[in-house]
């Protein structure tokens, strides 16, 4: 490679390395803000802001879903299955994928009493896909 081209190559590489480094520093500095939601341990541990609009997420604890007798009110517990859990209160239509054991994201405000008042509930889907008959086998029910 002749010296002229080598110089150009070095300049381009320097440009890419420089912008990558800049962006990396920005992303590291913004790290907390780039997470879309607070996981249960941060909500319970007091790292999540109280009475400020934000998102929190977790898995719906089995048997924790309680629906109001009248209206659309519902409460459930979001957990990380590692000892942290918080209660969510919501009034509205839940997404189709909402069920116990499902990853859920709630948007709203955390009250001072530790109950999350949700304005919006979103279902988080994981990367696992299965045909229905395989699920029956996986749960031991047979096809």
């Amino acid at each position: 490679m002749n010296p002229k081209r080598r110089n150009r190559l070095l300049i381009v590489l320097f440009l890419v390395a420089g912008s990558a480094a800049t962006l990396a520093l920005v992303l590291v500095a913004l790290n907390d803000n780039l997470n879309l939601f607070y996981p249960p341990d941060q909500v319970v541990g007091g790292e999540a802001p109280v009475n400020t609009p934000m998102r929190a997420g977790g898995m719906v604890l089995d048997g924790s879903v309680a629906r109001a007798d009248d209206g659309l009110g519902v409460t459930f517990i979001l957990t990380d299955y590692q000892g942290s859990a918080f209660t969510v209160a919501y009034s509205g239509i839940l997404p189709d994928l909402f069920r116990e054991g499902q990853g859920i994201l709630v948007q709203g405000k955390l009250g001072a009493d530790g109950v999350f008042q949700a304005r919006e509930v979103l279902a988080k889907h994981d990367e696992t896909y299965m045909p229905p008959e395989l699920v029956d086998i996986a749960r031991g029910g047979g096809p």
């Binding site: 997404p95 189709d96 979103l122 279902a123």
Partner: peptide
């Protein structure tokens, strides 16, 4: 929209 419940979310 049908899966998450939102058309758009500002995640990473």
């Amino acid at each position: 929209k049908p899966t998450w419940g939102a058309w758009w979310v500002w995640d990473a």
